[in-house]
């Protein structure tokens, strides 16, 4: 349990570092790890200055209705966003619709949400999918909810920055149209990643381990930011900041 909590905290710290150069980050109410990361970055560096938790009442500052997010994105007012998917392929196409032949998908997933739009317009889209398996990371998605790449005549200001899973972090190379393995989390190995990734990707045999979280950043998360995380993501906070550690901190 503690190990899982530590792994999740490491992901939070890793993502926080990726958001340091952003002014405005929007995250879904159902995305606790990216959400916690954005809150942590804001607490640590004051950037992103704006963290908007979509679907939340207290932590969403939009006053223009559900469409404001998309207008913001289209104007370049959102710097980073997170997308996931039941399937992600080697060209960074994502599938949020379902497995099998559309429309009779089996299983059907919720649907595309705003991905078909936001993927084109937000500069730094981080693909985040904890499950790292051949089921989720596939050669070719069954349905393209949003394409990773577009031809030159297509208006496109944004796209995939990288892919973060429970095993590794990949950067997307737009010129090569491929992912490149950036770092391997300490719980995994290159062999493990090759075994569990359904698409081919570039890598060096000396690919580094993902750096452990900076102790000061981790401390900030465990102390100051945990309250904020608990306010926005109560169930998640309960899982990663167990009561025992809370009692220990209280002392």
């Amino acid at each position: 349990m503690t190990d899982i909590a530590d792994d999740k905290k490491a992901l939070i710290c890793l993502i926080a570092n990726l958001l340091r150069d952003c002014n405005h980050v929007a995250v879904g109410a159902a995305s606790p790890i990216p959400g916690a990361a954005a809150l942590l970055a804001k607490a640590a560096w004051g950037t992103p200055r704006f963290v908007n938790i979509l679907g939340s009442v207290a932590n969403n500052f939009f006053t223009g209705g559900g469409g404001e997010l998309f207008d913001c994105a289209a104007q370049g007012r959102i710097d980073a966003f997170f997308l996931g998917g039941g399937q992600i392929d080697g060209q960074a196409n994502i599938n949020l619709m379902g497995r099998g032949d559309y429309p009779s998908s089996n299983p059907r997933w919720p649907g595309t949400f705003g991905s078909a739009y936001l993927y084109f317009l937000i500069p730094k889209v981080i693909l985040f999918r904890e499950e790292h398996s051949r089921r989720t990371l596939v050669e070719k998605v069954d349905f393209i909810s949003a394409p990773g790449l577009s031809d030159n005549s297509t208006y496109r200001k944004g796209g995939p920055f990288g892919l973060l899973t429970s095993k590794a972090f990949f950067r997307f190379d737009k010129d090569k149209k491929r992912f490149r393995l950036e770092s391997i989390h300490p719980t995994s190995s290159l062999e493990d990643i090759l075994d569990n990734t359904g698409f081919s990707f570039d890598y060096s045999k000396e690919a580094p381990l993902t750096a452990p979280p900076d102790p000061a950043l981790l401390e900030l998360l465990n102390q100051e930011v945990r309250e904020k995380v608990a306010e926005v993501y109560p169930n998640f906070a309960e899982a990663i900041f167990p009561m025992t550690s809370s009692a220990a901190h209280a002392k």
Binding site: M97, A116, I144, P147
Partner: peptide, 13 residues
């Protein structure tokens, strides 16, 4: 008119 969406299977269907 709306940006984005081009090249997706959402548009195709």
């Amino acid at each position: 008119p709306l940006r984005g969406i081009l090249g997706s299977d959402v548009l195709k269907n």
